[in-house]
Write a protein that binds this DNA or RNA. Structure first.
Ligand SMILES: NC(=O)c1ccc[n+]([C@@H]2O[C@H](COP(=O)([O-])OP(=O)(O)OC[C@H]3O[C@@H](n4cnc5c(N)ncnc54)[C@H](O)[C@@H]3O)[C@@H](O)[C@H]2O)c1
Ligand SMILES: NC(=O)c1ccc[n+]([C@@H]2O[C@H](COP(=O)([O-])OP(=O)(O)OC[C@H]3O[C@@H](n4cnc5c(N)ncnc54)[C@H](O)[C@@H]3O)[C@@H](O)[C@H]2O)c1
Lengths: 207, 207
DNA sequence: CCATCTTTGTCAATACTTGCACAAAAGCCT
DNA sequence: AGGCTTTTGTGCAAGTATTGACAAAGATGG
């Protein structure tokens, strides 16, 4: 397939899902898989998996399937997570504490390197070993370190204002835990991590 | 539009997004909105919003737009979150603590009513005011209270086994924070809350 | 009370996404 | 070595989703 056409965003959105499935298979000691096995795991058709991968190249062997470690490497490179992006977290509350303690990004291409809060009594304290910095310093730190990725963990009422500051400082991707709609310029990527919305989506099918 | 045809899941997935936007408008004191304003907020076309709503009925007034409070009520009823679903959380770690402390589901149709862990030293302790129960008791409690919704906040290695227990106990919707692919029967809804996957999706567009 | 303006709900056209089906490639087994 | 089996990558058809366009409904203002 032509490697130059624009890849649909919906395809990009599935690559991390494939990566997650491959991680599980690898952790179970498997070395080879097939589009059929992956499809069954994920509840999608094998054709979709092959088609998605074909946007980027040929990664399998006919008759054999895919080498799991190799496919992980390739997908990581495609998603640009074969490196470590430095991430800033804004809002040093319980959610930030869980994120820093657990580090769910370890080995996934991201590392939390700075934590900010605006409450004077929190500044200078430590949260799960990480120093809480004054959010007045945020633009300076983001610019100096060239940070591109931010996690928003402030109350909903503060979120838009903090997002504006992040964008002005040069952040290009924001993951927001605040359960409010945000506006950012089109060149900045925005994702909402909204557990309530996820539950609501499932509630429709209950009963 | 015919009210009897099956509504596409992708439409259901957008309803919580609309609800979130309406909440923001309401919090800003607005009483009326239009498909155009909502579309601009959310970065989608106004036609899409009107079409999505038309699956369920007519909620606006021509020339005027939509009454925000009324539309919120209607969407809540459609999503079946005009009531309070009781939710069980499994895994009493820092993430569960953040969830219970912050209660991001308040007023959104869900309430956390039980918290389980398997580590003997955690059982009987309290987490953010909520008693930690023995996960051996989980099936009994879920069945007795008729719980349908669960949040999975255990390490990835335990997640599948806990999911199996939840399903066997009668749970019909699972929100999993564990970053591993799970298998559940088709009648059980499953959503992943995977922050790493969300960041990976955005990373593709960086640079 | 009428003209003008706004905005809905819906149809039809366009655009996008998925899945079928199959040739080709590659391993396996006798 | 050759036939059998498996599984990929992809063209194409079928199926879904999105958008443009507009009639109809309702508000607004003189
Ligand atoms: N706790 C969860 O599990 C969970 C889950 C989903 C979403 N959320 C949402 O994530 C956000 C954070 O959750 P939390 O439990 O940590 O909330 P929190 O309110 O306890 O903590 C937020 C922190 O942000 C700080 N803050 C406020 N305004 C700020 C600003 N302008 N600049 C910098 N820092 C600022 C506060 O001082 C506080 O320390 C909330 O919006 C919450 O609704 C939380
Ligand atoms: N912390 C975060 O912000 C965050 C974000 C995204 C995802 N996650 C994921 O969410 C999960 C929970 O995060 P955490 O930080 O609370 O993890 P954690 O490992 O600190 O806590 C998990 C808790 O689950 C309990 N547990 C283990 N096995 C169990 C079982 N079979 N039955 C019942 N309880 C069991 C453990 O005793 C522990 O108390 C992890 O999978 C983590 O990767 C966390």
């Amino acid at each position: 397939m032509a490697r130059f056409e624009k890849v649909p965003d919906i395809v990009i959105g599935r690559l991390p899902v494939y990566l997650r499935a491959l991680t599980r298979l690898a952790s179970e000691g498997q070395e080879i898989t097939s589009s059929q096995q992956l499809g069954k795991m994920l509840g999608v058709s094998s054709a979709q998996i092959r088609k998605d991968l074909s946007y980027f190249g040929e990664f399998g062997k006919q008759g054999m399937g895919y080498n799991i470690a190799h496919l992980q490497e390739q997908l990581s490179a495609i998603l640009k997570v074969d490196r470590e992006w430095e991430v800033v977290v804004v809002g040093a509350g319980p959610l930030a504490e869980a994120l820093i303690r657990e580090d769910p990004f370890a080995g996934k291409g991201f590392r939390i390197v700075a934590l900010f809060d605006s409450r004077p009594e929190r500044i200078g304290q430590r949260l799960a070993g990480m120093e809480i910095l004054d959010s007045a310093q945020l633009p300076e730190v983001v610019r100096q370190r060239g940070l591109k990725v931010a996690i928003l963990a402030v109350p909903a009422a503060e979120a838009q204002q903090v997002a504006d500051t992040l964008v002005a400082a040069g952040i290009k991707a924001i993951l927001s835990y605040a359960s409010t709609t945000l506006s950012v310029p089109p060149e900045v990527r925005l994702q909402y991590n909204d557990a309530a919305a996820q539950l609501q989506r499932m509630a429709y099918y209950l009963q």
